[in-house]
């Protein structure tokens, strides 16, 4: 319990986060590349085609991880918003700001890959009566709203807290996305994967899990990288940032500012 408490206190310090998460950023980035390449290659080449859907079934290996992580990103936003409002933790606002574009991109990508999958499989790119499609579209609009709201409020602190409220209010959409498949049946079939029961054969679900894990690692990498950039922006005038730029802070190593290595593992 003491470990958690200490971690909580440490999270009050952007500086601690910046230095502590640097190696994590590098490792998560590498891991996500490895996992996504493996899963994709496996899914495209070795996994069997579906009995009914044929080869278009392979799209599942990009579509499903994308939408699952897109929802997880939003849930993370909700948590960050809650932490920001209740405990005024600076890092929560940093996370809230940093991850919105990524969530937006993933949700849009999920909708796109879903549409592309839908055409050969169910005959249509889009169906306005499918509850999961519509609630995912709503999710995309919520991301737009978060972005617009932050831009419209000039005070950075107030903007963060307003976005926190919107993020929390929008959380109701997540259960709708998950359970709409049970409540109404139009396009999406019932769940083929739950935590306890998997109705797909292993040759099919293992690459899916690999890609899912890889996508989560990518989420971690992007989150940490963008949070660290945001921290630098907010703390630009502090002495610790100056020291880090000069290569004096712990974990700094040599000061090489070629674009490839910047902030990537330092």
């Amino acid at each position: 319990m003491g470990v958690l408490k200490r971690l909580w206190h440490r999270l009050g310090s952007p500086r601690w986060f910046f230095h502590m998460m640097a190696p994590w950023q590098w490792w998560l980035g590498m891991l996500s590349a490895l996992l996504l390449l493996t899963g994709t290659f496996w899914g495209l080449v070795y996994a069997p085609a579906d009995y009914q859907q044929g080869e278009s079934f392979r799209i599942i290996y990009v579509h499903v991880p994308t939408v699952i992580v897109a929802q997880s990103v939003y849930m993370a936003l909700g948590v960050a918003g809650f932490v920001l409002l209740v405990w005024r933790m600076k890092l929560a606002d940093v996370a809230l700001k940093a991850i919105v574009p990524f969530g937006m991109a993933l949700t849009a990508l999920g909708l796109f890959t879903g549409a592309v999958w839908g055409r050969p499989t169910w005959g249509t790119y889009w169906e306005w009566t499918d509850a999961r499609l519509i609630s995912t579209l709503i999710l995309l609009f919520l991301y737009f709203g978060l972005y617009a709201l932050r831009e419209s409020i000039s005070s950075a602190e107030a903007a963060g807290r307003a976005c926190a409220i919107l993020a929390i209010v929008g959380l109701v959409n997540i259960p709708v996305i998950k359970y709409s498949v049970e409540w109404w049946t139009t396009l999406h079939q019932g769940e083929t994967i739950t935590l306890t029961r998997i109705r797909m054969p292993p040759e099919m679900y293992i690459p899916l899990l690999i890609n899912l894990l890889g996508m989560y690692c990518l989420f971690g990498y992007v989150l940490i990288a963008r949070m660290r950039s945001e921290i630098l922006r907010r703390e630009r005038d502090t002495t610790w940032v100056g020291a880090w730029l000069r290569g004096e802070e712990e974990g700094a190593g040599t000061d090489n500012s070629n674009g490839k290595g910047a902030l990537h593992g330092r």
Binding site: I134, I138, F141, L142, F144, G145, A148, L149, L166, V169, G170, V172, N173
Partner: peptide
């Protein structure tokens, strides 16, 4: 922009 998605 903020509210219409929630009202869908």
């Amino acid at each position: 922009l903020l509210i219409l998605p929630l009202l869908v």
